[in-house]
Amino acid sequence: MSTVAPDMDPRTHGDDDFAARTARHLGRRHERFVAVEVRAGAVRRARAGLPDGADVEIGSVSKGLTGMLFADSRDRGEVCDSTVLGDLLPLAGAPAAEVTLGSLATHSSGLPRLPSSSGALRATLDLWRHGRNPYGESLDELLAATRRTPVGRRRPHYSNLGYMLLGHAVAVAAGTTYAGLLRDRLAGPLEMTATTVPSTPADLLPLAVPGRSRRGRPMQPWTGEALGPAGGIRSTADDLGRLMKAVLDGTAPGLSALEPVTRLSGPVRVGAAWLTLERRGVALTWHNGGTGGFRSVVVLDRAAGAGVAVVSATARSVDRAGFALVEECVGTGG
């Protein structure tokens, strides 16, 4: 496995003020993290316990990138909201074949959180007992499981399966793989050179760092071709900064993904993966993520031109810190 030993220097590094604020909001249970703040075009970074350039798992923040790729494909006329999965993926005769891409993008397709699988329970037990990756399936294996998966009533319901299928379907519409789509249409144009979708541990970059469970157990990296669009992207603080800067200055592709179109749960509205929540009269756009050994969050105050990304290499939530840092940055915290 291509990983490096974590830098155990307990000090924070980067912009002194931002590093201190990040460490304060995260607290002592987050000894290994990277963070980046963008405000008025300026980028500040912070890290602790990890090497400079650390390659980390961003978990379901991957869905935000997939949502942007879907919106970009829609802008190009390759797909539309009413395009069904069966037009792009070999699902003929399966209930999922009639699911629309638009419903997948807003988590309202009727698909369950994960596909039907006889090995799901065993994979979950292996994750909690031994730290093993519960996702490693190929696209063919994902499609086989999807053919066996029933589709329920269309209603708001967060679905990892839905975003796996959405990303791969959009890639087929573009005549490429999901990894190729991400590289050619988002990571490449934004110069996110260390943002990848590893299918196996052998695909990890040299600075890929291992994550830990809440109790400190080393966790296997979450790699897998099927997983990629929903939670398999790895990135760095520098690349997350480039992504946020491009979103905030309006130069990123697929920006309509960030515009809320329907309610997901309670006060939370959803566009194409990206969530919007109003706090203290300010609309914040965000997505969080979690894998066996990482937690992540990206929070944007688009009106103020500010954003923060935080990724911890320990499976403890960083959501509160991400929201607090953005609100502190623009002076809306209280």
Results as ranks from 00 to 15, higher is better:
14 G>R: 10
21 R>E: 15
24 R>G: 00
28 R>N: 11
29 R>L: 11
30 H>C: 14
46 A>H: 10
48 A>G: 12
50 L>H: 04
52 D>W: 05
59 G>C: 09
68 M>H: 07
71 A>W: 00
71 A>Q: 00
72 D>Y: 05
79 V>R: 02
79 V>N: 03
80 C>K: 07
93 G>L: 05
97 A>N: 00
98 E>N: 12
106 T>F: 00
111 L>H: 08
116 S>P: 00
118 S>I: 08
122 R>A: 11
122 R>Y: 01
149 T>L: 13
153 R>C: 01
162 G>S: 06
163 Y>W: 13
166 L>F: 08
169 A>G: 04
174 A>R: 15
177 T>L: 03
182 L>A: 05
191 E>Y: 01
206 P>Q: 08
206 P>G: 07
211 G>F: 04
211 G>P: 02
216 G>N: 15
220 Q>D: 15
222 W>Y: 05
231 G>W: 07
235 S>R: 06
236 T>H: 03
239 D>E: 07
246 A>P: 09
246 A>E: 08
248 L>E: 13
267 P>M: 14
268 V>G: 09
270 V>D: 05
275 L>C: 03
279 R>E: 14
282 V>N: 02
289 G>C: 14
292 G>D: 00
294 F>Y: 14
295 R>A: 11
296 S>F: 09
300 L>K: 09
308 V>E: 07
311 V>G: 01
314 T>W: 04
317 S>V: 02
320 R>A: 13
320 R>G: 06
327 E>H: 12
332 T>G: 09
